[in-house]
């Protein structure tokens, strides 16, 4: 079959799976996950990289995000997969094109063509910065996080409230100055939202809410290696 016809029927080109790593900071923390996908689609369109669209009636840019981030959180190691239509385009050029069209609060960090499947994500690291954390509260927090079992109620998918023990999901923690570092299980329906941990703490220890901000700083695999 002549090439032109093949092109019309689609599928002659090889698709390249690409993973991009980025930081979502500053004002972008107020952008919800849903809005973020639309935003990314626009950045990609602006950058003119030859991206692959899904086929069928409602064609859209194929994008797959690891671990959607809650509204209000910063993410310093966010991951998104998409597909390039192979045209001998170097992925470094692709990264540069994206950087060129991005507003300041998003920073594209690196791009790869070989990477682990998303299902290998096992943990995520968060840093929570408190407005103030007294020594007394810090001590209580540390004791709280060492508990064998931390029961808290969580709204299930159908709005049902169920009790879960989150202690096994807390891999490690560290309290320093006014901040708390947490490594929590993540991915494969195991994701624990760090504010759930703090909510449980404020409630259990009867401490009034302290204002804090949340940053997700890293994503790990089962061996606690940087997930790539």
């Amino acid at each position: 079959m002549p090439d032109a016809e093949l092109a019309v029927t689609g599928r002659v080109f090889a698709l390249r799976n690409i993973r991009i790593y980025f930081a979502k900071k500053g004002r972008l923390k107020f952008v919800s996950h849903l809005d973020m996908t639309r935003f990314m689609a626009r950045i990609i369109t602006k950058s003119k990289i030859s991206i692959w669209y899904t086929e069928g009636f409602n064609q859209h840019i194929y994008m797959n995000f690891a671990l959607p981030l809650s509204l209000g959180y910063e993410g310093l190691y966010e991951i998104m997969d998409f597909r390039l239509i192979d045209d001998n385009y170097s992925i470094e050029d692709c990264l540069e094109s994206l950087k060129k069209v991005s507003p300041p609060d998003i920073e594209f960090l690196k791009i790869r063509e070989n990477f682990a499947p998303m299902k290998e994500i096992a943990f995520a690291e968060y840093i929570m910065d408190f407005e103030t954390l007294s020594d007394e509260a810090a001590l209580k927090l540390s004791e709280f996080l060492k508990r064998e079992s931390i029961i808290c109620s969580k709204k299930g998918k159908k709005g049902k409230i169920r009790e879960i023990d989150i202690a096994p999901k807390i891999k490690s923690f560290n309290i320093e100055n006014n901040s708390l570092k947490l490594i929590l299980t993540a991915g494969n329906e195991n994701t624990l939202n760090p504010s759930l941990v703090l909510d449980a703490f404020f409630e259990a220890c009867e401490i009034p809410q302290i204002f804090y901000t949340v940053k997700r700083t890293m994503v790990f695999n089962e061996k606690l290696e940087e997930f790539e």
Binding site: G26, F30, S32, D35, P103
Partner: peptide, 12 residues
Amino acid sequence: KPGRYSGGEINS
């Protein structure tokens, strides 16, 4: 909807 007040949009 904090996005109403945060600014920082593309092309601002």
